[in-house]
Amino acid sequence: MARIFDRDTLLDLTVNVIPLGIILFFVVAFVLVDPFGGLDFYGRVLQMGLLVFPFVALAILTYVSGKAIAGDEKRSPVFFQGQATMEGAQTRHEAEADIEAADEAAAAATAEAEAEAEADATDDDADPDTTDEE
């Protein structure tokens, strides 16, 4: 589990952490400020339930889907969307390596062979700035 939820995956999941944070903010606000006041116990349960239920459901779904997606990423080759079943499609790993290689080649104007060796050595996980790509 710790392996599945590495830094990249957690970064991907922040997108759902924001709405969770907003809901949490209101939970705290309603506890501290208690707008309109005077709710009995049952009313309080409703008021909080309306916030807590979506919060918990979203947290669970985010966890489950994150686990499924990140898990499959580790287990099998990752393609760009819609390309998995295509013959000769590049995996994400290869595409990134290519870009890397091209960059290297252009920047340093070094020998191609060198650049490729460099690219081959590139590790998916060691490449933080491509996580946002498809």
Binding site: V15, P54, L61, T62, I69
Partner: peptide, 20 residues
């Protein structure tokens, strides 16, 4: 490529849950 593909996926799921 679509920028932030996985952001789009996770936010789709988030909308799904929160819409209830």
């Amino acid at each position: 490529k679509l920028f932030g593909f996985k952001f789009v996926v996770y936010s789709t799921l988030a909308i799904g849950v929160l819409s209830f």
